[in-house]
């Protein structure tokens, strides 16, 4: 009996390790080959480079315009995330507290956006109309708009868990609505706001299709777009492509390792409630 349980445990471990290897091996290959010469990397094998070619990384950063696109990605993701979180928290708070036919309708109307696709071709016309096409402000404004539905859905459910007595006592003390919101409600919403922020940030950081349609100046490109264009130009130089992939993955993986708990919490929000 004991022997059998031991055998099952071993079999489970072998299965789990094999699956883990299918996830990890591609990364190992890429890491190793990013340090080889052009001809060495073409073989894409597991042999270690005789002399690591660190220059690959230098070439990628310079030719691939990685600094500027890293800055762009960071700017778009950070500002849009802050905007989304603040604006949707304000809206979700009022819609949840003041339930009338109007606010209920608005809530359903906004949440409906979760299911809707973006018509990018028509979006370009709208962006031209507002003079936002090809601008950093434009893409940030669009990111806030396109994340509104999901963020509202997550935050709205959480607002009702904060007792109304909090609002009323603050109101009696004479706090104005905006002060009441930012000094009392906003801090209490923190767990759900972190969750929303992490999700929104990752989504924007990894987004490819929006800048593909909206930004044609390479100086405004985020990481995703510049790595794709780099791949187009250096398709034969796998060593450089691999180095670019490594540099693109490192920031997200670092965030994942540090904030794993929040990311997993964020991505599973809504899965268990209800």
């Amino acid at each position: 009996m004991k022997k059998r349980r031991f055998a099952v445990a071993i079999a489970k471990q072998i299965f789990a390790v094999a699956l883990s290897l299918t996830i990890i091996m591609p990364f190992v290959i890429i890491l190793i080959n990013s340090l080889k010469t052009r001809t060495g990397a073409l073989l894409m094998d597991l042999s270690l480079p005789k002399v690591p070619v660190w220059q690959n990384y230098q070439v990628v950063v310079e030719r691939g315009k990685l600094f500027i696109s890293f800055f762009n990605s960071l700017l778009y993701a950070t500002v849009s995330t802050l905007g989304t979180v603040v604006l949707t928290a304000l809206a979700a708070y009022v819609m949840s507290r003041r339930r009338t036919r109007l606010t209920r309708f608005l809530y359903s109307f906004i949440v409906f956006g979760i299911m809707l696709p973006t018509n990018f071709v028509a979006l370009i016309k709208v962006m031209q109309l507002f003079g936002l096409i090809n601008t950093r402000v434009g893409i940030i404004a669009f990111y806030i708009a396109s994340n509104t539905a999901f963020a509202t859905f997550i935050i709205y459910g959480f607002v009702s868990s904060i007792p109304r007595a909090m609002d009323e006592s603050a109101a009696i003390d004479g706090a104005k609505p905006l002060r009441l919101f930012f000094s009392i409600i906003f801090p209490l919403l923190q767990p759900v706001l972190v969750t929303t922020a992490v999700l929104t940030f990752l989504g924007i950081w990894n987004d490819f299709i929006t800048p593909l349609y909206l930004l044609n100046r390479s100086t405004a490109w985020p990481m995703t777009l510049s790595i794709y264009s780099f791949f187009g130009r250096f398709q034969q130089d796998w060593n450089l492509v691999f180095a670019d992939i490594v540099l693109t993955c490192v920031p997200v993986m670092a965030i994942y390792l540090v904030g794993q708990r929040y990311i997993v919490q964020g991505m599973t929000a809504g899965a268990v409630k209800g």
Partner: peptide
């Protein structure tokens, strides 16, 4: 007191952006 505490204007910024940049393209489309 409720309506004063929870002004509808708080919904506006998110709603306007959502309408103009998310709904409008689809409708114009």
């Amino acid at each position: 007191i409720r309506n004063k505490l929870y002004p509808l204007s708080f919904i506006l910024p998110a709603l306007v952006l959502y309408l103009l940049l998310f709904i409008m393209p689809s409708v114009l489309g």
